[in-house]
Amino acid sequence: MKASVDETGKKMGMWLFLYTEIILFGGLFVLYAVYFSRFTADFIQGGKQLSLFFGAFNTVILLLSSFTVAASITAVQKGQKKAAVMNLLVSILCGVVFLINKYVEWGEKIHHGIYPNSDTLTGMSSGQNIFFGLYYVITGLHGLHIIIGLILLLVALFAVSSGRVTASRFMLLENSGLYWHLVDLIWIFIFPLFYLVI
C-alpha cells in the first residue's frame, strides 16, 4: 500500500491562504478607491508623474513569467524535466528584472524627494500625498510578495531538478505557481490604477 498523499488537501490549503491575500490587497484597493473618488484630480496629477514605460514593461515581464510558470507545470506533467527547469529559470529571471525595475523606479522618485513624510511630498496637496503614500504601500507590499514568490519558485526549481517533483507528485510546484500567479493577478490591477489614471 502506498502512503496516502493528500494532493487535493494541499491545494485547498494553498487556495485558502490565497483568499486571505485577495482580501488583504482588496482592502488596500478599497482604500485607493475611496480616496480616488475624493481626490480624483490629485490622483490624476500623481499618476502622470509615474513612468508609464516602467509600469508597462513590468506588466509584460510579469505576464511572461506567469506564462513560463504555467508552462513548467505542463512540462512536468509531460515528463519533460529539462523544459520545466528552463521555464522556471525564465520566470525567476523575470522576477529579478521586475525587482530591478522597481528599484530604479523608486530610486528615481526618492531622488526627486518623493517619499513618505518627505518635505516635497508633505508640501504637495493632501490628495497627492495620499496617492504617493498608497503607491509606496501597495507596490511595496506587492514587491515583498515578489521576493517571497521568487524564493518559492527557487525551492520548486531545486525540487524539479532533483527529481522530488514528478509527473505524479507536483503539488510543491503547483502551489508555488499559484502564489506567483496571484502576485501577477494583483499587479494586473495595480498597473491601471496607478500608471493609467486619467
Binding site: 506567469s66 504555467a70 505557481g177 499559484l178 500567479h181 501577477d184 493577478l185 494586473i188 490591477f189
Partner: peptide
C-alpha cells in the same frame, strides 16, 4: 483588468 485576471485565473491557475 478583470478580463485579464479571469484569464490568469482560469488557465494559468
Amino acid at each position: 483588468a478583470s478580463v485579464k485576471g479571469s484569464l490568469v485565473l482560469l488557465y494559468f491557475m
